[in-house]
Design a protein around this nucleic acid. Structure first.
Lengths: 208, 208
DNA sequence: TGTAAAGTGGACTAAAAAGTCCTATTAATC
DNA sequence: GATTAATAGGACTTTTTAGTCCACTTTACA
């Protein structure tokens, strides 16, 4: 299910789909780097090499384009996280997941933050549909984390009384807050430290 | 030290200072509610009942105004947090601090997020000066938290080997990440849960 | 293979935005 | 109280942005 198609029951040829994808791809990059507010439709046109009529053919306007970007980014992130977390069942595995995220963010010295988180804080108060889509995506992401924790619990690495959902929320918040502090400091360290604290807490529960 | 004055060595009458303050106050509210990108100078003019020449008299342009807003919000937040945290030296005190933040955020069902955090994620990648100012403010805020943790440590509620700075970073990240998740979900719960996990971790260190 | 609908290019309009400028007050200082 | 500079009002220009329109091309499919 997507939130962004403007002309729902319309036919869509392979050529049209390709153009639409080019627009979304260009918009995604620009909005990640420059921010949603600072990205104009002309920017998107120039970056994708597409004409204005095509953009308005595929999207009702900027809001619709932003929603398509959210869908696109969300799909990518969830896919990546599903691959990274889907079969993790040990603390060691969780730490490897952490290392990958930290290393990736270190490449740009923390700049730009989390692809999903940046969109969320910029768009949530302006577009209710976009906010709901983002909320669903965070929930989905968090469920992947909860899945890992549940497997930890099943394997005895977490006590039965541990509240999986609350731990997943805390871990997700640490991740997102860490991204933001790293973005502001232009330094990954706070992100790494934040996740480490959450993981240390999770680990400590089995030694209580 | 401020980052935002456009005409540094200029004389400033009481009347001028009042006008400048009105502009900043109006801009602060608008940018918190609508976001920085969606707030136009005309919006600020209308909300403050001030003319365009005055705005450009006091500020070089929108970026300078945004920096003044950051200074203003930062001052308010740091002042509030200093009052709330400056003399806290118990876990109970920390929990009262948590309750105040959560209750306050609950009033708007999580919307708009943290006054400083929202600015940070929207502005950090666009204006280096603003980013640095925000980074300093987060550091200052975090030092207030570190002060509390140090007093906890001095009082024996935290073991000597606990890394105060890392715990403060983790707590700050939990707070900020919680704000963001709450903003996206339009529900304070994730924010409360995230801080609770951080506090539980801190508390658990003394029982290890 | 004809035709209807999808897709495309780009000029054009309208609105909103930032930023400038000139004139008139008001306040501080000698 | 004269004079200098700050403060204020608001019309004006310029630039940017969103959004429209129409002529033309390509694709699907009956």
């Amino acid at each position: 299910m997507t939130t962004a198609d403007s002309h729902n029951g319309r036919r869509l040829t392979a050529r049209g789909a390709k153009t639409r994808a080019r627009i979304v791809a260009a918009a995604t990059d620009l909005m990640y780097i420059k921010g949603v507010g600072a990205t104009t439709l002309d920017d998107v046109l120039a970056a994708s090499g597409v004409s204005k009529s095509q953009l308005y053919h595929h999207f009702d306007g900027k809001d619709a384009l932003v929603r398509a970007v959210i869908d696109h980014v969300g799909e990518r992130v969830i896919e990546r996280e599903r691959a990274a977390l889907g079969h993790v069942s040990t603390i060691r595995g969780l730490r490897r997941w952490r290392d990958a995220l930290v290393q990736n963010n270190a490449l740009r010295h923390g700049a730009y933050g989390c692809a999903l988180g940046s969109l969320a804080s910029e768009v949530s108060d302006h577009d209710a549909l976009a906010r709901q889509a983002l909320s669903r995506l965070f929930t989905e992401w968090q469920e992947l984390l909860a899945g890992v924790l549940r497997r930890l619990q099943d394997g005895g690495a977490l006590p039965p009384e541990a509240s999986i959902d609350q731990l997943a929320t805390g871990l997700m918040a640490a991740l997102q807050g860490g991204y933001m502090l790293a973005q502001t400091a232009h330094d990954v360290t706070p992100m790494a430290t934040a996740i480490d604290m959450a993981l240390a807490h999770i680990e400590s529960l089995s030694k209580g």
